[in-house]
């Protein structure tokens, strides 16, 4: 079989990269190995393989799942991420198109206001935002989706706007002549054109919201624990924690991310490049 790449080309570099790859994966493998060791054998010898004495089977996993309510946390994480990403993609694309096509001072003022929010660090607004969320009774898994819509709108609108401007006006005018009103125009003409951008925006927001810790912790953390919150609670006081359960929960937290990565790798890489160049 012939391949474009000759097998012996850059062999030294190939070996160097192979060693680096192993080093890159090693931290995850070490956590995986330790998740099968008894909790008192982890801190003392984290780099040894389990033996007859230290092997704990699935004990850490059962312990961890029970103590963190892992499946409930997984459900909250999934619900909040999917809900927020869907609403953000829809809301931000509609707003971007509206702001780009209504050329008024108010529209461009709103656009710059949204873009401005991107540079404000979370610590500046975290206290007041969580107080307001509390007062308005948004401190539940549905309410927090609205918070994410508001907080993520800046970056999403910024990315969408760059592409909305490149849509030829003739297409829109033709659709209007054919009898489209703004609603049918947006959903049957504009949004399909924006689909690749919508995927980018959705991927970027998924990566952010799934892993987000502080915002959900402050808004709903007492009653509804997402995966990062559940893991942080498991840690408890330094020294008193169950290392075995912690290792097992780290593994369970990583698995969904790896599955997501395997299925969406192409889009994720594209999203990163688009998001970075735009942001």
């Amino acid at each position: 079989m012939e391949t474009k790449i000759k097998p012996f080309k850059n062999l030294g570099l190939f070996f160097l990269l192979s060693i680096l790859s192993v080093l890159f994966i090693a931290p995850i493998i070490i956590v995986l190995i330790n998740s099968f060791k008894g909790q008192f054998y982890i801190s003392d010898a984290p780099f040894s393989l389990p033996n007859a004495l230290t092997f704990a089977g699935t004990e850490n996993y059962l312990n961890g799942i029970e103590r963190t309510n892992f499946f409930t946390a997984f459900f909250y994480s999934l619900f909040i991420t999917v809900g927020s990403v869907l609403l953000l993609t829809l809301g931000a694309s509609m707003t971007s198109w509206y702001l780009a096509r209504t050329k008024s001072r108010f529209s461009s003022f709103l656009y710059y206001l949204f873009v401005f929010s991107m540079i404000v660090p979370f610590q500046m607004v975290m206290f007041t935002m969580s107080k307001i969320a509390n007062t308005l009774r948004l401190d539940n898994p549905v309410g927090i989706i609205l918070i994410y819509l508001g907080f993520g709108a800046g970056l999403s609108i910024f990315i969408f706007s760059g592409f909305v401007k490149s849509i030829p006006r003739e297409i829109e005018e033709a659709a209007v002549v054919d009898g489209c009103n703004p609603i049918t125009l947006f959903f049957s003409v504009i949004f399909p054109i924006l689909r690749p951008t919508a995927i980018t925006v959705a991927i970027l927001n998924t990566m952010w919201i799934w892993n987000d810790y502080l915002l959900p912790y402050l808004v709903i953390g007492n009653d509804y624990k997402t995966i990062p919150i559940a893991i942080q609670y498991l840690q408890g006081g330094y020294g008193a924690r169950d290392m075995g359960a912690l290792m097992a929960m780290l593994v369970l937290a990583i698995i969904p991310i790896i599955v997501f990565y395997l299925f969406c790798q192409k889009y994720i890489i594209k999203g990163v490049v688009a998001g970075a160049v735009k942001g």
Binding site: L110, V120, A133, L136, L146, G150, F151
Partner: peptide, 21 residues
């Protein structure tokens, strides 16, 4: 329909907390 829902969420999650802050 197009801008108000996002704007309300934006005000609640960002704008008011920012000014209040």
């Amino acid at each position: 329909l197009f801008a108000l829902p996002t704007l309300i969420a934006f005000s609640v999650a960002f704008l008011i907390p920012f000014l209040l802050g």
